[in-house]
């Protein structure tokens, strides 16, 4: 399904990541997944949370550069080749993946995908009964 991910611009400074984690913790917002894209000067923290709108509000109030981004969340089997099935559909449809991250738990795996065009990717995945 399509869900909203929080994207937060962070300078590379000690403790900055914890500032976000602490704020969200205090606000009672749970993080279920996150990834951090970085280069030498800054990072972009991408987080899936229990309440994206509340999280955005809390972070904005503290002057964080935070935005909500539509991403695709898929639950697939934690078996060899499952991910390839998904990616093949997107590749065949000519979809470009800007970034993705995944984590597995027991028999299942969760995949977060940010394609360049979310509606088109959803259409392709639905046509193959993956979504």
């Amino acid at each position: 399904m399509v869900i909203q991910q929080l994207s937060i611009f962070l300078e590379n400074k000690a403790g900055r990541l914890n500032d976000v984690a602490a704020l969200l913790g205090k606000a009672g917002v749970n993080m279920t997944a996150f990834s951090l894209a970085d280069n030498s000067d800054f990072g972009i923290l991408r987080v899936i949370v229990s309440d994206p709108h509340k999280a955005q509000e809390v972070l904005k109030a503290q002057k964080f550069a935070v935005s909500l981004t539509d991403v695709i969340h898929l639950q697939i089997a934690n078996t060899p080749g499952s991910l390839s099935n998904v990616l093949a559909v997107l590749a065949d449809a000519g979809m470009y993946i800007e970034y993705m991250y995944a984590f597995s738990e027991g028999n299942g795996a969760n995949v977060i995908i940010k394609p360049d065009n979310v509606p088109n990717a959803v259409e392709a995945l639905q046509a193959h009964k993956i979504m």
Partner: peptide, 13 residues
């Protein structure tokens, strides 16, 4: 500008 902070590393670079 506040609205230009992007989710995309490439855009920021």
């Amino acid at each position: 500008r506040p609205d230009l902070y992007s989710d995309n590393v490439g855009t920021m670079i």
